[in-house]
Each structure stands twice: as C-alpha cells, then as structure tokens.
Amino acid sequence: MRLKIIHETKYNFSSEVYLEPHQLRLKPKSTSFCVLDSFDLEIHPNPMATREQIDPENNTIHFVWFQNKTKELIIRTNSLITISEYNPFTFIIFPSQYLQVPFNYTEELKTALFASLRNMDIDQSLKDYSSSVLEKSNNTIDFLTNLTQQIHNDFELCYRHEGYPFDPNKTFNLKKGSCRDLAWMQIHLFRNLGIAARFVSGYYYIKVDKPKYELHAWGELFIPGAGWVGFDPSYGVVTGNAHIALVSSSHFDQTMPVTGTIRGGGNSILNTTLYINEL
C-alpha cells in the first residue's frame, strides 16, 4: 500500500511579526514496515536557511531561521510512504525475567532509559486503576494490552486541537481526553510500575468514507527482546502499520510539530489540514 500525506500548518498574525528560529518535527520515520519514499518541505515566507538535524532522541528536526517581517507562516509537507504488512506481536520477550510485571531493568538499561522512566506523582486512585488490571494477569503482554483496552473502554475520546496534554490526574478524573491526554496518562501508569515509556506523535490512517485526519498521539514501551512497542489507548490496540510515527520522546514537549517564538505584538490564528490518500 502506498500513501500520499499532505500536511499544512498555517499561522495568521494580526500584525507583522519577526519569526525567531523554529524547529519542525514533521518528517515521517522509516521503519521495517513503513518506508519513506520521498519528503518535501515547503515554507512561506522562505527561510534564510533550513538545516535538517537529528535530536538527542534520534528524531529528525528541521531547524529554520528567517529574516524580515511577515503576517503569516505556512508550513506544508508532502510525503510518499510505502506501507507493508506487519504483525506487531512478532517478537519474544527475553530474558525471562521480563515476562511478568513488575520487573526490573538491568542497571545498563536503566541508564539508557533514564528519561523514559521518570514518573510524576499520580493520585492513589490512578495507581489503584492500573493495579486492578494487574490483578487479572501479571503476564507482561497480557497486562500491557489489557490496560490499553481498559482505558479505551473506560474513557471518552474527544478532540482538542490545541494545548499540551492534561495532567494524568486531571484526565483520570474527567474520564475523557484527547489522544495525547490518554497517552500521557497511560505513560505515567506504566512508569509508576517501572516500565520505560515515551510519547509518540504521528498519523493514524484508517480507510473511511469521509476521512478527517488529524495528528495522533500514542505511547511506546521498551520491552527487552522486543524493543520499543507502541500501545494506543485511544483505540485500545497495539500499534501496527496504521500508525505512522513522526517523532518520539520521553516528554511530550519535544514532540510538538512546530515550536518557535515571534517578536512583535498581535494575535495569531492556527489552522491545520491533513490529507492522507491511498495511491
């Protein structure tokens, strides 16, 4: 299957502003089942320069800087991707000490995974929620999939176009949230059990009659023997070839598609469009 993805982000400013350097995280990752055939980045106004670089967590970032004033910033990406069949359960957990939750990583892994193990304080009620799922089965895969499905069943998925993910406690009390709210809550449920988890931003492609695509978010866990495995609480699934990752990080603020500041007064209006078409 071949997909064409067109993603446009547009900022309109009420008065002319200077654009400070911006970081763009919009280039799809290539994986064993998702090959990026081509990628084009268009920016208006034309930046003075664009530098593609790799960040400390192995994500591709386009660092751009500008000159002169402008009343708008338009960022448009065109990606062609080839998707192949993929079974997300084609792995074994090894060594056997990781077959049951809770488990302890080796000291070497703890060092490598340090940022993805940092957990925030969450309410006891939220800890009890994951404990109730763990009581059903402490088999690692059973627990991870059961908790993902439980969140999907118990929480209402709603759409919130802007803003950082809610605090996990807030999402739990509301019993609803955007994809990023649910992912961030689940990440901290896993981290409180000593499981390394990171935040992923990307696309989720499903063939529907009247598609309306938006950026999507989910979590990835590090399981020895399997590596990083994605779990999507919004849909209650282990991620497969319908999930196309752009960027992953131990903290959501390093996955924002566009980050940067402006100099000058006035307000801004953000509009985004995302088209995913099967060729």
Rank of each mutant, 00 (worst) to 15 (best):
97 Q>R: 12
98 Y>W: 05
99 L>P: 00
99 L>K: 09
100 Q>I: 11
101 V>S: 01
103 F>C: 03
104 N>T: 14
104 N>S: 15
104 N>C: 06
105 Y>S: 05
107 E>W: 00
107 E>R: 03
108 E>S: 10
109 L>R: 07
109 L>T: 11
111 T>G: 01
114 F>G: 00
117 L>N: 08
120 M>L: 15
121 D>Q: 12
122 I>E: 09
124 Q>K: 07
124 Q>N: 11
126 L>A: 08
126 L>Q: 07
127 K>G: 04
128 D>R: 02
128 D>V: 06
130 S>R: 06
130 S>N: 05
131 S>R: 02
134 L>Y: 03
135 E>Q: 13
135 E>R: 04
136 K>V: 15
137 S>M: 05
137 S>G: 12
140 T>L: 11
142 D>N: 11
146 N>F: 05
148 T>S: 13
150 Q>R: 09
151 I>H: 06
152 H>C: 14
152 H>G: 03
152 H>Y: 14
153 N>Y: 04
155 F>K: 01
156 E>I: 12
157 L>A: 10
158 C>D: 14
160 R>C: 13
162 E>Y: 12
164 Y>C: 09
164 Y>H: 09
167 D>Y: 02
169 N>H: 07
171 T>E: 09
180 R>E: 10
182 L>S: 07
182 L>I: 05
183 A>L: 10
185 M>L: 05
185 M>F: 09
185 M>Q: 10
191 R>E: 06
191 R>L: 06
192 N>W: 01
192 N>F: 02
192 N>Q: 04
197 A>H: 00
197 A>W: 01
198 R>G: 08
198 R>T: 12
200 V>P: 05
200 V>W: 06
201 S>N: 08
202 G>C: 04
202 G>I: 02
204 Y>F: 15
205 Y>R: 01
206 I>E: 15
208 V>T: 15
209 D>S: 15
209 D>V: 10
212 K>M: 12
213 Y>H: 14
214 E>N: 13
214 E>H: 13
214 E>V: 08
217 A>H: 07
217 A>R: 02
219 G>K: 00
220 E>G: 07
221 L>I: 15
223 I>S: 04
224 P>W: 10
226 A>N: 04
227 G>L: 00
228 W>K: 04
228 W>M: 08
230 G>L: 07
230 G>S: 09
232 D>H: 07
232 D>A: 11
233 P>E: 14
233 P>T: 13
233 P>W: 11
